[in-house]
């Protein structure tokens, strides 16, 4: 079997398209590359959707935490504490079994027990909490003069937030937010390792990597492949976020621009 045939058979295997049986013996490098790459579709899907959704919730949570009224502040603080204070791993497990028992009561929750929705909800809430904390910190460090200048110009209320506070907040938070995004992509590998089952062996990259490692007893090939894919993904994320960072900082003189310092994190 040539490599092209393998790619045709397995490139979309993680979505259930193509050859149904996974390779069982005589594993080739090509098969490992194709299947692990196919699993990356899930990682990208979880990361991108959770990040896009989480961004908006994070802004709301940050505003809530900075609010003066305790009715807004307390729930936001608790939300952030719960999701940042407990391991994501446990959150996945808990959510899975929570959805399972809810499914017994209300059939409406049936799709939540599948990874594509259930795990997405957990990742969404989790990243919202982490980025909410980042945005809150940025919100606290907005230069006083900016807000005073806005007041002097008679900009107030929603338009002051939209045109002054929010862009500055993003600008200040962006380097930390980039780290959070990278970190979230790494965290997507936990999905199929926690409670969520991979139906019909449609798993993510780590699922296939560990499949190969289990079958061949040789971790030195699949895991480096996985690491390679993730490094590529991280580079893409850095590129995209760097471009946005440039745009957010374009009005500042060259030397005041905030550089992104990458601090890879380990586990959430």
């Amino acid at each position: 079997m040539s490599c092209w045939e393998t790619i045709a058979d397995y490139a979309l295997r993680s979505q259930g398209i193509g050859e149904r049986l996974l390779p069982r013996s005589d594993f080739t490098l090509c098969q490992q590359f194709t299947l692990i790459g196919s699993g990356m579709i899930w990682n990208v899907y979880f990361g991108v959707v959770a990040l896009c959704g989480g961004f908006f919730l994070a802004t709301l949570v940050a505003l809530g935490k900075a609010a003066r009224s305790p009715w807004l502040r307390k729930p936001s603080e608790w939300f952030i504490f719960i999701f940042r204070g407990s391991p994501l791993f446990i959150q996945f497990f808990f959510a899975y079994f929570l959805f399972l028992s809810l499914k017994g009561v209300m059939p409406i929750f049936a799709p939540f027990t599948a990874a594509w929705l259930g795990a997405l909800v957990v990742l969404f809430l989790n990243t919202a909490a982490y980025s909410g904390e980042i945005f809150y910190g940025a919100l606290q460090s907005i230069p006083k003069g900016d807000v005073e200048a806005a007041d002097a110009y008679g900009i107030s209320g929603v338009s002051r937030f939209r045109r002054i506070i929010w862009p500055t907040m993003l600008r200040l938070a962006w380097p930390a937010y980039t780290n959070e995004a990278i970190f979230l992509f790494h965290a997507t590998t936990l999905v199929f390792f926690s409670g969520f089952p991979a139906s019909r062996q449609m798993g993510d990259a780590l699922y296939y990597a560990s499949y190969f490692a289990d079958k061949t007893f040789n971790p030195f090939i699949p895991y480096p492949i996985l690491a390679g894919y993730f490094i590529l993904l991280t580079l893409v994320v850095i590129g995209l976020f760097g471009a946005i960072n440039k745009r957010l900082n374009r009005h500042l003189p060259q030397e005041q621009r905030r550089k992104i310092r990458l601090r890879p994190n380990l586990i959430r």
């Binding site: 965290a187 780590l206 690491a227 380990l266």
Partner: peptide, 14 residues
């Protein structure tokens, strides 16, 4: 530099 639980999975066997 090496990310995540891949390290944990890989390292124990190694």
């Amino acid at each position: 530099g090496v990310p995540d639980i891949a390290f944990f999975l890989f390292f124990v066997i190694a």
